[in-house]
């Protein structure tokens, strides 16, 4: 498995906001078979990936998203494996279809905690409004 990121991935990452998060990638051929993979798959919560096997068999979550034939698709805060939050970037270039996985567990958990507080407040507010209505 390659630890070094290929040129297509490096070029794509340069278009994204600066990040020092763990990254991993899959490169797929026109039949959506994995031809290359690498980076920090384990740190991104992705089990080992085998070359020569359909990507969707190894990561069923991406089946409906491929192939990419237009601009990149980005799905932030995706949870495929319990305890791991990733951003999924899918794009294509002359080399193939790329699945770029960027770990976002730390920021995702922080966001979840903030969102939880906010929505719990919203629920309490809704309940109070309802009580006032029925008084």
């Amino acid at each position: 498995m390659n630890k070094k990121l290929p040129f297509s991935v490096v070029r794509y990452v340069k278009t994204q906001p600066a990040s020092n998060r763990s990254m991993a990638y899959l490169c797929l051929d026109e039949n959506l078979v994995v031809v290359d993979s690498g980076g920090e798959l384990e740190k991104c919560g992705i089990p080992s990936i085998e070359n020569g096997v359909l990507a969707s068999e190894q990561l069923p979550a991406i089946e409906s998203l491929l192939p990419i034939d237009e601009s990149a698709v980005v799905l932030v805060n995706t949870q495929i494996i319990e305890g791991s939050i990733i951003d999924l970037h899918l794009f294509a270039d002359s080399v193939g279809q790329w699945v770029l996985i960027i770990d976002n567990t730390e920021a995702g958990l922080r966001l979840q905690s903030e969102q939880q507080d906010r929505l719990c407040n919203d629920i309490v507010e809704e309940q109070n409004t309802k009580k006032r209505r029925f008084k």
């Binding site: 805060n77 995706t78 949870q79 939050i85 995702g108 979840q112 929505l119």
Partner: peptide
């Protein structure tokens, strides 16, 4: 209640 951020995918 646990809020969901983004998406959780199950099969």
């Amino acid at each position: 209640y646990t809020t969901t951020i983004g998406v959780k995918i199950d099969k």
